[in-house]
């Protein structure tokens, strides 16, 4: 097995699917950044480079797919919560369709 090739391929897959994973998680309820990282790790076992999450969230927000709001905390250090926007929900639905089609196609080829 070419481990290096597999590693590079997996990195690309992670990079390409992270925004999809984030949108799926944010469809359930609102999350703040650190909580979102933990949720991704719990469900996917993907070792997310935590700092890269914020540029991605910013991009999703700029695209109008997620919305954010600051919520004050007793500690005095507020949390920034993210949730899927209406446009984000519609986009996610379309992404799920594409993902299902792709999944079916790959399974068909693999048989």
């Amino acid at each position: 097995m070419n481990a290096e090739f597999v590693q590079n391929w997996f990195s690309q897959v992670k990079k390409g699917t992270l925004s999809y994973i984030i949108l799926i998680i944010l469809d359930e309820k609102e999350y703040y950044g650190y909580e979102l990282v933990q949720e991704i790790k719990t469900h996917t076992h993907i070792d997310v480079a935590e700092g890269t999450l914020y540029p991605l969230l910013n991009r999703l927000k700029a695209e109008g797919l997620v919305e954010s709001r600051w919520v004050e905390q007793e500690s005095g250090i507020p949390r920034k919560y993210y949730v899927l926007s209406k446009d984000g929900q519609a986009t996610l639905a379309e992404m799920k369709n594409i993902w299902s089609s792709l999944d079916m196609a790959i399974k068909k080829i693999q048989k």
Binding site: G33, Y34, E35, E50, W70, I77, P78, K80
Partner: peptide, 16 residues
């Protein structure tokens, strides 16, 4: 905005 978000991340990580 950026500083506050990173600060929040560090704070929550320490608390957890």
């Amino acid at each position: 905005e950026i500083s506050m978000e990173l600060n929040s991340h560090v704070y929550e990580a320490i608390q957890g």
